[in-house]
Write a protein that binds this DNA or RNA. Structure first.
Length: 385
DNA sequence: TTAACCGGGCTCTGCCATTAAA
DNA sequence: TTTAATGGCAGAGCCCGGTTAA
């Protein structure tokens, strides 16, 4: 898509006045009030009509109030927007309404990312079309905008967005990967192309430094396993790699395998958090009599253990041990730690009531879906009868 | 038939700081 | 000097079910 020519951008700006004529339910509420002056950059050049510099545009405030926008929040987040003489709040509202957004959602979007009203209709159209290359329906996009308006509106560079999509595809990421990425980490697409390239380069460098032979594949593997990676800094990722290597005393190939496998999921954690959790896990396990090798084995087979906060992890381990499960069993089947403490506790209690022997039958039963667990319980109960 | 393995779905924004342009 | 654009950060898991192996 060609970059938007300035003239077309100007023509595409459906400043407030123009948009009010076609806007449905929201504009109906506007009919009894005077027209907003938001569009009133005086074409004659008579600056007397403009609000004085550094004062809020009264008619814009009125317009936002009518849209149900939380003006206090706007003032707190991006006060400069309220001083603008030319804005597109009604055009934006109409645009979003046409895409299926409710008045409540529109108000919430503008309240949380006020600069959205600075975007022209043509810009919005183009950006929407680019997102629609990845999403099947408008409603999917509306859902994401409701969740994270900043991701959609923060950048006005559609060319950059287009280049980002092309770049990510060129890495060999599938449409499914892109869909997941745009759904869960939409900020990735607002990053500058350069920033995304830096992260990919950083990942490729890490691979080469660890003796990997296929840096492109490595970067792709990490990104598709951890879609948040591109919204983190290269400094954070690098520091985590160094810390993991030091803490776990790992060789190059061992670390490489971990990072392009399950370890990718913890690469985006904050450096301090990862360190804190590692130290906490080590302390906790040491206090339970585990050797360093056992701790390393647990982390390598289940790196997500470092994702769990210390308090949560501690309570999960305690409730498993209290239920008669050994540390060795947990290390052998670490996925049991993925379930909530309440879930684990409830299941252990239920199994104990039926006289289930964890030593004899193992703990895999704890790592199963609700449906499968219920079926198992039913069977065990029938056997008892 | 059952247990175990394993991958995948869901999810992650809102704020502040810095930089560059106007 | 102000403002828009952009970079970076903190925060902190749970669950399901298809496939394969026994």
């Amino acid at each position: 898509m060609a970059m938007v020519p300035r003239l077309r951008t100007l023509l595409g700006l459906h400043w407030s006045l123009a948009s009010q004529h076609s806007f449905g339910p929201i504009t109906e509420r506007l009919t009894s009030v005077r027209l907003p002056r938001t569009l009133c950059s005086d074409p004659t050049g008579n600056d007397k009509l403009k609000p004085p510099v550094n004062t809020e545009n009264e008619s814009l405030l009125e317009s936002l109030n009518l849209l149900g926008v939380d003006v206090k929040m706007v003032r707190k987040r991006q006060p400069g927007v309220l001083r603008k003489t030319s804005t597109n709040e009604n055009g934006l509202a109409q645009f979003l309404q046409n895409k299926g957004a409710s008045c409540r959602v529109i108000a919430s979007i503008i309240s949380r990312y006020p600069r959205a009203i600075m975007r022209s209709i043509e810009h919005l159209d183009q950006r929407w079309d680019l997102w629609r290359n990845i999403f099947k329906t408008d409603s999917e996009i509306v859902t994401i905008l409701e969740r994270s308006p900043e991701s959609f509106f923060r950048s006005c560079d559609n060319g950059n967005l287009e280049k980002n999509i092309a770049f990510l595809i060129s890495l060999g990421l599938s449409t499914k990967d892109l869909h997941r990425m745009l759904t869960t980490a939409p900020r990735t697409f607002s990053n500058s192309l350069e920033l995304n390239k830096q992260m990919v380069k950083c990942l490729e460098d890490i691979c080469v430094e660890l003796g990997g032979k296929n840096p492109e594949q490595f970067a792709k593997a990490v990104i598709s396993q951890n879609v948040y990676i591109l919204i983190r800094s290269t400094k954070r990722v690098r520091t985590n790699v160094v810390n993991l290597r030091t803490s776990l005393k790992m060789g190059d190939s061992e670390l490489l395998a971990l990072l392009q496998g399950p370890g990718a999921e913890i690469l985006d954690l904050s450096n301090e958090y990862l360190k804190k959790n590692f130290n906490g896990l080590q302390q906790k396990m040491a206090s339970l009599g585990c050797h360093k090798d056992v701790i390393k084995k647990l982390i390598i087979s289940y790196p997500m253990v470092l994702y769990i906060g210390l308090t949560t992890l501690s309570s999960k381990l305690d409730c498993l041990l209290k239920g008669g499960i050994t540390m060795q069993q947990i290390v052998d089947k670490p996925k049991v730690l993925e379930y909530s403490t309440a879930n684990i506790t409830g299941r252990i209690e239920e199994l104990q009531r039926l006289g289930y022997d964890f030593q004899k039958n193992g703990i895999s039963i704890l790592d199963s879906s609700k449906k499968r667990f219920a079926a198992k319980i039913e069977k065990l109960a029938a056997l008892q009868d």
